[in-house]
């Protein structure tokens, strides 16, 4: 008779351990839940702590906001799988503790050294599946980090400004979301095609990546 209430209690405890006790994020996120934000912040800063040759940390570079937008942009099944990935990573240390004292806590509650040790365990695992999980997770965070213009500028990898010639196709298709009636160009706008001049490495940066550009 006692089994059912005991099972329910165990379930409630497990849910509480998994989902409760997370701080309210300082920013608003459209897709990420509170517990996901905590995990993303912890993992982003473990991968990309502040300082070193590229100053911004994962959080400074806006990785959580990027992951939030990225999740919204991928198809529903992939979004679900990514969320499972975050959940798995966040709670795997309940089952296989991180090294050091207090290692049987959620990933986001571990010390920075313990987080790095956990990441390393995933990466060097002899299991291909675990390595794939790690690689997928790292890929999302790295894309987020590199979406920050400040990071790209620090690495001298920001794109350059390029004058885009008006070509015949511009008379045929409007920007996505617009109707063909809204095409702004006519035959009189056609310019000379690209002249093949090599990119000027001292030239200005792409406006969205220049200092003060879109972040």
């Amino acid at each position: 008779m006692l089994v059912v209430p005991l099972l329910l209690a165990a379930l409630a405890y497990a849910l509480w351990r998994v989902l409760a006790g997370y701080p309210t994020p300082s920013e608003r996120y459209g897709t990420l839940a509170r517990h996901e934000v905590a995990f993303v912040l912890a993992a982003a800063d473990a991968l990309f702590p502040r300082g070193g040759p590229v100053p911004p940390s994962g959080a400074d570079a806006g990785v959580p906001a990027y992951v939030d937008r990225y999740l919204a942009a991928v198809p529903p099944l992939l979004r679900f799988l990514m969320r499972c990935l975050f959940l798995l990573f966040e709670h795997a240390t309940f089952f296989v503790a991180a090294p050091g004292s207090g290692g049987r806590r959620r990933f986001s509650s571990l010390s920075p050294e313990q987080r790095v040790a956990v990441l390393d365990r995933w990466r060097r695992s002899s299991s291909f599946a675990m390595r794939i999980v790690f690689t997928s997770l790292r890929a999302i965070f790295t894309m987020g980090y590199f979406a920050d213009p400040a990071v790209l500028r620090a690495l001298r990898l920001a794109p350059y400004a390029i004058e885009t010639p008006i070509v015949e196709a511009d008379l045929l298709y409007p920007p996505i979301g617009r109707s063909v009636d809204e095409i702004r160009f006519g035959p009189q706008d056609l310019g000379p095609p690209s002249d093949g001049r090599p990119l000027d490495l001292d030239g200005p940066l792409h406006p969205a990546y220049a200092e003060g550009g879109r972040s």
Binding site: L47, F48, P53, M143, L155
Partner: peptide
Amino acid sequence: PPALLAVRVPGYGLELKRHLAEIP
């Protein structure tokens, strides 16, 4: 794109950042 290239760069934390600084 650098974001996709960087996925292959090894390491974490400051060690990773040192590796990233080698991309140029």
